[in-house]
């Protein structure tokens, strides 16, 4: 695996005693889109903040393309661009000047051709001479992205890029991200919109309580945990499952009105249907459902929360 960013045993305990990150290890592949999912306060922003240099870690290390973020911070940071969660921009500055300023901070000479290309990609070219305070919310977010890309970074961090953004703009944002990926930029985004992760990420990382619960290919995760379920609504409710159906992984629900089968093993849905018919039960309706990423996420986080409680109790 061609790793561009490596996080090893990263921990952060704030002066207040609050532990925001507990020994997080993570490798990010060159050119991938990784979505970090987690509930509020899970440590997503802290993780990004440590990697980008906003927060000093209390344990572990991070290397960006081999450069340590503390010892070799100049090289490490020059490879990274950050789009913060909040729209924080100098209100009176003009768009082009502000983007040029960002490029300057990274020690790069102004490049009018690149600037024009960047602003055109983000549909900001027509607004280049407009003071930032005159822009719409969506445009301001694009200015933040332009500023983060002004020094041509290889890794882009997007912290909750679509929080509080309308549907249309969100889709537009996803297209921008997809375009950046085509250009070879590695993208790490945090979100608590599962739909977002499902739509654009290659890999999913789930953080809860400052720990990384899992990092997995989206497709593999969905295949492993996104089990299909078959729900059969019965014409007549039954008190208990007929003995002939015992070999199948069936659950009687809704006061005996429906049978729920979870996919697994070599058994196929047709086998279940045939067995149910053979047992003399008449089926009124059939519905299938696949566990979504959202349900997987909620289940994992709930499991983790429970495990934490048990540990504290012990």
């Amino acid at each position: 695996m061609d790793t561009i960013l490596s996080v090893e045993g990263l921990g952060k305990t704030y002066a207040s005693g609050h532990t925001a990150l507990e020994s997080v290890s993570l490798d990010i592949k060159r050119g991938e889109i990784l979505a970090l999912l987690g509930p509020n306060g899970a440590g997503k922003t802290t993780l990004i903040s440590v990697i980008c240099g906003l927060v000093t870690p209390t344990a572990g290390r991070v290397t960006v393309d081999g450069a340590d973020i503390v010892q070799d911070y100049r090289r490490a940071r020059s490879l990274i661009g950050l789009v913060p969660q909040e729209v924080v921009l100098e209100p009176f500055e003009k768009v082009a000047n502000d983007v040029a300023f960002s490029r300057g901070l990274y020690g790069k000479r102004t490049d009018p051709a690149f600037m024009e290309k960047l602003l055109r990609t983000l549909s900001l070219w027509d607004k280049r001479d407009a003071p930032i305070l005159t822009l719409s919310g969506g445009m301001k977010r694009r200015v933040l992205i332009a500023k983060a890309l002004a020094h041509e970074p290889r890794i882009l961090f997007l912290d909750e890029p679509t929080a509080g953004v309308d549907v249309e703009l969100r889709k537009e944002m996803w297209e921008t991200v997809a375009e950046l990926k085509r250009q070879g930029v590695t993208i790490i985004l945090t979100t608590h919109y599962i739909e977002e992760a499902e739509a654009i990420a290659d890999r999913i990382g789930i953080i809860s309580g400052g720990e990384l619960l899992l990092v997995e290919e989206k497709a593999a995760l969905m295949a492993r945990m996104g089990r299909r379920q078959l729900t059969l609504t019965l014409a007549e409710p039954v008190a208990r499952l007929p003995a002939s159906l015992a070999p199948y992984d069936l659950a009687l629900e809704d006061e005996g009105r429906s049978l729920v089968w979870s996919e697994g093993g070599d058994v196929m849905a047709g086998d279940v249907l045939a067995a149910v018919a053979k047992a003399g039960l008449s089926v009124r309706d059939v519905a299938t459902h696949q566990r979504s990423l959202e349900e997987i996420f909620v289940a994992l986080v709930a499991e983790d929360g429970q495990a934490r409680k048990n540990r504290e109790a012990a």
């Binding site: 100049r74 940071r77 950050l82 924080v88 960002s102 990274y106 020690g107």
Partner: peptide, 16 residues
């Protein structure tokens, strides 16, 4: 001012 409006992040994440 950048501390107040939050744009200080840019100075802190830059290679300076």
């Amino acid at each position: 001012f950048p501390k107040f409006i939050g744009s200080i992040y840019e100075y802190l994440t830059a290679p300076i």
